[in-house]
Amino acid sequence: MSFFPYAVAAWLFVIGLYGIVTSRNFVHLVICLAVLQSSTYVLLLSIGYRVGGTAPVFAGVRVGTPAVDPVVQALMLTDIVVEATVVALLLALALQLHKRANTLDPDKLKALEG
């Protein structure tokens, strides 16, 4: 297994964080969170990858055929479901914020300082 996918996962994590820290718009910010999240997909899938492995469907294959790990794929699916919910909720909050405060810029919201 090469080092490359892990580097991609780390890169996505860091670039997502960078996006969140510097964002001037809550919708953009939530999407940066989704980018950060995709690093966990890459990480999980690369952990389960086996060189030369087939898809983990065991009907009609010889016993002992190498297959990639289905567990991490299940984890990733769960991860997608959970995070779709969270991102949808956060985007709904951002929309509502825009309706009430007429801005999506975190710099312009001063109510919660100190």
Partner: peptide, 26 residues
């Protein structure tokens, strides 16, 4: 609007925390 901002701050920081946990679990 404060309510939305507070919930967004809460949601975003905690979700980043959740991804940290998930990466560690991975």
């Amino acid at each position: 609007p404060e309510s939305m901002q507070g919930a967004l701050n809460f949601g975003i920081t905690n979700t980043v925390g959740a991804f940290l946990v998930l990466s560690g679990i991975g």
